[in-house]
């Protein structure tokens, strides 16, 4: 059995992906229209990274999971009410923006600072997890820059699976073209893994995990460090929604070929 790990999962929050989003010009640059009203969720890729962390922690007893999350405090609290039931973790909150309109280097800077400040941080056990991109901004660079800031050179992006070995080394499956994976072997921590969707199902809600997390989450939130990254240097010239046309029909038990044929017809016709 592998030795214990220190898994830090980085994840922002994004509006629940089912919401209608519209960029507008706010006093501090671009913002999402009615953002305060939109229910939020943990960024889907980070959400997945958290499940992977929980799964890995089970294989390496004694491991600890820390979730580092930058988002407006009140929204973060609400998101925690949902994810705290999934697995036990410690929260390191940063009270900052989550609109997706912040440079990834600035976000990475905030995250790096918090990670460096984690009590008892042991670089030799550290795996930094996050989404390989974000639902709020798909630049796909935050984890990479964060790794550089932490001085971690073993970096993997678009990860779908990690296979931990007893000696602490692990294989990582990264997505490449054509639905294939590149398999890399890494000698061990520290490493940065930017997760794609992976294969794990969402764990059920566990009220006991919820209770355990609650004891730490609320006090941590009260002490959330305020941050205002990305104030200078970046100028957005224009933001707009991609145009879309929708025509929903709900079908069940239709063969994939039939759906593909209809879609092709719809797009070309």
């Amino acid at each position: 059995m592998a030795g214990s790990l220190q898994i830090v999962v980085c994840g922002g929050i994004v509006p629940n992906p089912l919401q209608t989003l519209e960029p507008t010009a706010g006093p501090q640059g671009p913002a999402l229209k009615n953002e305060a009203m939109l229910p939020a969720v943990l960024d889907p890729w980070a959400w997945h990274a958290l499940f992977e962390a929980a799964n890995l922690a089970k294989q390496a007893p004694g491991s600890k999971i820390t979730l580092v999350c930058m988002a407006p405090k009140a929204k973060l609290q609400q998101v925690m009410m949902t994810i705290a039931q999934k697995t036990v973790f410690e929260l390191q909150p940063i009270d900052g923006p989550a609109s997706g309109f912040v440079e990834s280097a600035d976000v990475a800077g905030e995250l790096a600072e918090v990670i460096k400040g984690i009590n008892g941080l042991d670089m030799q056990k550290l795996l930094v997890f996050g989404g390989w991109e974000s639902a709020s901004r798909g630049a796909g660079t935050t984890m990479q820059i964060l790794g550089e800031m932490l001085g971690i050179t073993d970096q993997f992006q678009g990860v779908d699976e990690i296979r931990l070995k007893d000696d602490g080394s692990f294989d990582v499956l990264e997505r490449i073209e054509g639905g294939k994976h590149q398999v890399s072997r890494c000698a061990g921590a520290p490493a940065v893994l930017g997760w794609a969707t992976g294969n794990l199902p969402e764990p059920p809600n566990n009220p006991q995990a919820g209770m355990a997390n609650m004891r730490g989450i609320m006090p941590a939130l009260q002490k959330a460090r305020p941050a205002k990254p990305g104030q200078d240097g970046v100028k957005f010239l224009d933001v707009s929604l991609p145009s879309q046309r929708r025509e929903t029909r709900v079908v069940k038990d239709t063969p994939a070929e039939e759906i593909a044929r209809e879609l092709a017809e719809w797009i070309t016709g």
Binding site: A74, Q77, M81, T82, N205, P219, L221, Q222
Partner: peptide, 14 residues
């Protein structure tokens, strides 16, 4: 949100 911030009660959705 105010209730949760008070830390005296817990509300679990889902």
């Amino acid at each position: 949100n105010q209730l949760m911030a008070s830390g005296t009660v817990q509300i679990w959705p889902s």
